[in-house]
Simulated assay, not measured.
Amino acid sequence: MSTAAAEGDPLGTEPLLAAAVGIALGGERIGALGIAVGALVPAGTTRGRRAAS
């Protein structure tokens, strides 16, 4: 079981949450590529969970 699943993050969205904090607190900017990659994080996690079960 992954760390994300063990700690109650069912979608493995830690990278997205980290990006949100960076944007909100650090004033980071996110471009179109960053948004596209951000959309792939939950999709990849979902696919991996389906393959593992």
Score class of each variant (00 low, 15 high):
D9M: 03
R49Y: 10
A43I: 05
L11S: 08
A51N: 07
A52E: 07
V21T: 04
T13W: 01
E28Y: 13
L11E: 10
V41T: 05
A36E: 04
R47N: 01
T3D: 12
A36T: 08
A6M: 13
D9Q: 02
I35C: 09
A19P: 00
P15R: 09
A5C: 08
R50G: 04
T45I: 02
V41Y: 00
L16C: 04
A18M: 03
A43V: 12
V21Q: 02
A36W: 02
I23P: 02
A43F: 03
V41F: 01
D9N: 14
R47I: 13
A52C: 05
T3W: 13
P15Y: 10
R49G: 10
G27F: 14
G38H: 00
G26N: 13
A36K: 05
G38L: 01
G26K: 14
A39P: 00
T46P: 00
E14R: 13
D9V: 06
E28Q: 13
V37S: 06
R29K: 11
I35Y: 08
G34E: 11
A19S: 08
A32R: 13
G38I: 02
A5Y: 07
L17P: 00
M1D: 14
A52M: 10
G34Y: 07
E14W: 06
A6T: 15
G12A: 04
E7A: 08
T46D: 14
P15H: 03
G27E: 08
R49C: 01
G34Q: 11
A4D: 15
G48I: 06
E28H: 11
P10A: 11
G22C: 07
L17T: 06
